[in-house]
């Protein structure tokens, strides 16, 4: 089944059109195209150094593409050598987490979430300075949303802890909760289960499902745990050396000879995971 073909009819929230990026002489991502329809749960997999994180950095405005375009929610947000700043892209509906967790360590769990309302629930300098009624009402709206998110992500009883004191699994969940607080249309998760034991992985799997079902957000995740990908994703994009080598439903990707070869050639530990499941 060719997803790109099927998508022409459906509106896609996120679309790469022949986007590529070169660092010095290294072509980290070769012209790459794919589109994510509303509410889809897709995965990007590939061996180490395949360019997965770089694709996320392109999508979130960290780098401008060397060539090609990126479209978000029907608007072009990046083209060759140009991109919108990350914080402005967040406002347009893209949120992310990082491969190495990045939280506001000295802020409380609740404040980590509250801070992420900056792009869509805020008030100006003078309201803050004079503590106006508008500030009070916006703050109370933020507070309601924050409590709801903490509830959804099971962090309510951690609300007043400093983020850096949380256990690893909670930190991952907080990072996803914070990303959801930006009110995204599409959420990018960079290896949300890396370094986790099976029970923590199961926990994050539940969380991702929740995000999709309760909040209705499209999710694109980079993942090495194949069981998770097979279990919850509708679609798998495989990158190798910056090139897309497969883009299909999980069961088809699993048996794709090119994919198996890519993993075989790279003596990666996840090789067994791909072939074994």
């Amino acid at each position: 089944m060719d997803f790109n073909g099927a998508l022409l009819a459906v509106t896609s929230v996120l679309e790469l059109k022949d986007a590529s990026i070169t660092f010095g002489g290294l072509r980290a991502v070769s012209p790459l195209s794919f589109a994510i329809p509303q509410g889809q749960l897709a995965a990007i997999i590939g061996p180490n150094g395949a360019g997965k994180t770089t694709v996320f950095n392109l999508l979130t405005g960290v780098y401008a593409p060397t060539s090609g375009e990126i479209w978000l929610d029907g608007q072009r947000v990046a083209s060759a050598g140009k991109t919108i700043r990350p914080n402005a892209l967040v406002k347009r509906g893209i949120a992310r987490t990082f491969q190495n967790i990045r939280l506001f360590g000295d802020l409380t769990v609740a404040d980590n979430v509250r801070a992420a309302f900056a792009s869509h629930q805020s008030y100006g300098f003078w309201h803050a300075l004079l503590q106006t009624g508008k500030m009070a009402s916006v703050e109370s709206a933020i507070e309601d949303e924050t409590q709801r998110l903490l509830q959804v992500f099971g962090l309510t009883n951690r609300a007043e802890n400093l983020a850096r004191n949380l256990p690893y699994g909670d930190q991952r969940r907080l990072e996803i909760a914070r990303a959801c607080a930006t009110n995204p249309k599409v959420l990018l998760l960079d290896e949300p289960t890396s370094g986790m034991n099976p029970s923590e992985t199961a926990d994050v799997t539940r969380t991702i499902r929740l995000v999709r079902e309760q909040l209705g957000i499209a999710v694109l995740l980079i993942e090495h745990h194949m069981s998770l990908v097979m279990e919850i994703c509708e679609r798998v994009i495989v990158l190798d050396g910056g090139v897309k080598i497969a883009d299909d439903v999980p069961s088809a990707v699993q048996n794709n000879p090119q994919v198996i070869a890519a993993y075989l050639g790279s003596d990666e530990p996840e090789l067994n995971a791909v072939i074994g499941t």
Binding site: T60, R85, P86, N87, V90, K91, A95, R96, F98, R102, L103, F104, G105, D106, L107, D111, N112, R114, A115, A116, F117, A118, S119, H120, R178, A179, A181, T182
Partner: peptide, 19 residues
């Protein structure tokens, strides 16, 4: 809050929609 977020992690602040 945004100022303290910038203090703790500027990249994460930017990625959370903070200007």
């Amino acid at each position: 809050r945004e100022m303290r977020a910038v203090r703790d992690d500027e990249i994460a602040a930017e990625a959370s929609g903070i200007n």
